[in-house]
């Protein structure tokens, strides 16, 4: 049975019409037309659907929208301030940490979560922090470089 809810996404409270079984990924993409979160494995294993729920990374494919209807959701679309990219987004560009791009939004949000609890992660901590995100192009080396750049541990030169 469809019902209308209000959901706070990227700082904006928006109406959405959802079924009780809709996942957050479905609501974001099909109702709110935010296509930054991607559908990958759809079983909570690959990470390209990653969003932030109250600042914590979650797999939106395995989160029922109803359980987070009162939370603050952040997708990759909510990171930039107008035309100014978030420093993590910029670091991914500067490091060339993008190949096909399908995993990128999830990687960036997983990085956001990682740096919120560990501002200067070492290589092992970065790998552990991004363990829930797969890059099918296997471009992990550049992604780790991007996280180090974003955390101010390298200058990118």
């Amino acid at each position: 049975m469809k019902q209308q809810i209000e959901i706070n996404v990227n700082g904006e409270v928006q109406p959405a019409i959802i079924e009780p079984f809709d996942t957050l990924l479905h609501t974001l993409r099909n109702e709110l037309h935010l296509i930054g979160p991607k559908q990958g494995c759809d079983t909570g294993g690959c990470g390209c659907c990653t969003v932030l729920v109250n600042g914590e990374s979650r797999y939106s494919c395995m989160t029922y929208t109803m359980t987070v209807a009162d939370a603050e959701i952040t997708t990759v679309e909510g990171l930039a301030d107008g035309r100014n990219l978030d420093h993590i987004q910029q670091a991914f560009i500067d490091s060339g940490a993008v190949q096909c791009g399908y995993c990128t939004s999830g990687m960036i949000l997983a990085t956001k979560q990682l740096l919120s609890i560990n501002s200067k992660p070492n290589d092992a901590e970065i790998r552990q922090g991004l363990a829930g995100n797969l890059c099918r192009c296997t471009g992990y080396h550049k992604i780790i470089e991007a996280v180090k750049l974003a955390s101010g541990q390298t200058t990118g030169e």
């Binding site: 909570g44 990470g47 990653t50 729920v53 914590e56 990374s57 979650r58 797999y59 395995m62 989160t63 997983a110 979560q113 990682l114 922090g129 363990a131 829930g132 995100n133």
Partner: peptide, 9 residues
């Protein structure tokens, strides 16, 4: 063992 996204939930 689980990734951060699962640990959070």
């Amino acid at each position: 063992y689980p990734p951060r996204q699962v640990k959070n939930a």
